[in-house]
Computed example of a mutant assay.
Amino acid sequence: MSALGEREREAAWQRLLDEERARRFDLAKPPLLRQLLVRWAPDATGC
């Protein structure tokens, strides 16, 4: 997402959020932890 403009980045972020919400999480199958890493800008290093 770091190469996108602000408007495109926001749209891509919303798509990612929607996809993550729609993805099923089965507690009977590993892994029991899921993470998503998003880079907002090439020089962004932390929170």
Rank of each mutant, 00 (worst) to 15 (best):
R15P: 00
L37A: 07
R21W: 13
R39L: 13
T45M: 13
V38S: 07
P42I: 00
W13I: 02
L16M: 11
R24G: 14
A3M: 11
R21S: 12
W13Q: 05
L27K: 12
D43K: 06
R39F: 07
R24P: 14
E19K: 12
V38Q: 01
R34H: 14
G5W: 02
G46S: 11
Q35F: 15
L27M: 12
Q14S: 09
D43W: 10
R15G: 03
K29R: 15
V38D: 01
E8Y: 01
R7N: 04
Q14Y: 01
A41W: 02
A12D: 04
G46I: 04
R39D: 04
T45Y: 12
R7D: 06
A12T: 00
R21E: 10
V38H: 02
E19F: 15
G5H: 04
L17K: 11
L33C: 09
A12P: 00
P30K: 15
A44P: 02
L37E: 03
P30W: 05
F25P: 01
P42A: 04
L4K: 02
W13A: 01
R9H: 00
F25G: 04
T45L: 15
R39C: 09
R7M: 08
E8Q: 01
R39V: 07
R24Q: 15
L16V: 01
A22I: 07
P30V: 06
R7A: 12
E20M: 13
P30C: 15
A22Y: 08
T45I: 11
P31C: 03
A28W: 10
L27T: 05
R15Q: 12
D26R: 10
G46N: 08
K29N: 07
E10C: 06
R9A: 00
A11H: 00
W40Q: 09
Q14N: 05
Q35R: 09
P30A: 15
E6V: 07
L16C: 09
E10K: 03
W13Y: 05
A28R: 14
R15F: 08
S2T: 07
L4N: 05
W40R: 06
L16W: 05
G46W: 07
G5N: 10
A3C: 10
W40K: 10
A12K: 00
F25K: 12
R9W: 00
K29I: 03
L32R: 06
D26T: 01
L36N: 01
E10T: 03
W13N: 02
K29P: 05
P42M: 04
G5D: 08
A3K: 10
T45C: 12
M1H: 10
W13K: 00
L36T: 02
S2P: 01
R23S: 15
A22S: 13
A22C: 10
D43M: 05
A28V: 06
K29V: 08
E19V: 08
L32G: 06
R39H: 07
R7S: 04
P42L: 02
P31T: 00
R15K: 11
A28C: 13
L27C: 12
D18K: 11
R23Q: 12
M1S: 08
R21G: 15
P30Q: 10
R21A: 14
R23H: 12
D26E: 11
M1Y: 10
M1F: 13
W40V: 14
L27F: 15
R34M: 06
E8T: 01
D26I: 03
E6Q: 10
A11R: 04
A28T: 11
S2N: 11
E20C: 13
